[in-house]
């Protein structure tokens, strides 16, 4: 009897502590999200929202090539960016962890992610300075006479990918590096002892052991990249819109909230699909 009441009062205390966070999440995340999901099944008439349930928005998405193209653009760009970033970041993290002397590693890492701390908007803008027609690269190439006409490298998909890769190489270097240094050096010693050369050691031992970390980083890259509006808006020009840009168009010029909601749900589904595909490598654990 006494233990029961004791347990009850403990429970009450615990609920009191966890309630504010739960309420906040429910009120400002779950409810808005559900509201938006519901809204994606409504439709727009002029500036009014009609609360009639139908799948028109989703039907329109699949029938209107401009909208569908947004999703495929998003997926193409995001996948390119994710793969390129991992391929560039892994060697960098590996070199810092293995080749750079121990006492300089922290410095090298901080240096590698320093531009992280430029404002996100400014970072994309600064690539504009580099890539645009009058920008540094074109001027340099013109200067040494390699080209006679400035190249068209800004305001297209290449520029978007470069801007993204720049950001995510930093992010992935950080996550992969922290994975690499957690590995005991004895793994490498044991592999070498058993006759594996450097490449075999890397391929059969180091890479599999760091794969969960790499996949976590890659998934994070995918999520952040596919949902980003700024980078493609600044660097991508207006020819190949990605999904977030199209969503912003719906709520801006067209004031079509239901359509924006439907596109958001589709964006969510793309992320969920990516999660399901790499779920077996993802781990979130308590230390």
């Amino acid at each position: 009897m006494t233990t029961a009441t004791l347990e009850q009062s403990e429970h009450r205390k615990a609920w009191g502590l966890v309630a504010p966070a739960l309420l906040w999440t429910v009120a400002f995340f779950v409810i808005p999200f559900l509201y938006m999901a519901a809204m994606s099944l409504w439709s727009r008439q002029g500036r009014e929202i009609l609360r009639v349930w139908n799948l028109d928005n989703y039907a329109r998405f699949f029938n209107e090539s401009a909208l569908l193209r947004g999703l495929t653009n998003s997926l193409e760009i995001t996948l390119t960016v994710t793969v390129l970033s991992v391929l560039l970041a892994y060697p960098l993290a590996w070199i810092i962890a293995e080749r750079v002397p121990k006492r300089w590693q922290r410095m090298a890492l901080i240096l590698a992610i320093l531009p992280f701390w430029t404002s996100y908007v400014v970072r994309s803008y600064s690539w504009l300075l580099v890539l645009s027609k009058g920008g540094v690269i074109n001027q340099a190439l013109l200067g040494i006479g390699l080209i006679s006409e400035p190249l068209e490298i800004a305001s297209n998909r290449t520029a978007t990918v470069i801007g993204f890769v720049h950001f995510f190489v930093m992010l992935l270097t950080l996550t992969i590096y922290s994975n690499l240094i957690q590995l005991s050096p004895n793994y490498r010693r044991a592999a070498a002892d058993l006759g594996a050369n450097a490449f075999q050691t890397f391929w059969h031992v180091i890479l599999p052991l760091t794969l969960p970390g790499v996949m976590t980083g890659a998934f994070l890259t995918f999520v952040l990249c596919i949902g980003d509006y700024i980078t493609p808006q600044i660097l991508g020009g207006n020819n190949e819109l990605v999904l977030p840009q199209i969503i912003m168009l719906q709520i801006g010029r067209r004031a079509d909230f239901p359509m924006a909601a439907a596109l958001s749900i589709i964006l969510m589904l793309a992320v969920t699909a990516a999660y399901v595909l790499c779920a077996r490598w993802l781990k979130i654990e308590r230390a």
């Binding site: 429970h11 615990a14 609920w15 966890v18 966070a21 739960l22 999440t25 429910v26 400002f28 995340f29 779950v30 409810i31 808005p32 999200f33 509201y35 938006m36 809204m39 999520v223 952040l224 596919i226 949902g227 509006y229 977030p244 969503i247 709520i251 909230f257 924006a260 909601a261 958001s264 964006l267 969510m268 992320v271 999660y275 979130i284």
Partner: peptide, 29 residues
Amino acid sequence: LPGSAWQRGLLIAPMTVSYLIIALGLLAV
């Protein structure tokens, strides 16, 4: 607490959703 795994999941959930979607939902409400 009963259902603590669900509570943890709920609290972490916003991390997996794009900021754009969180913003849109809040804006709509």
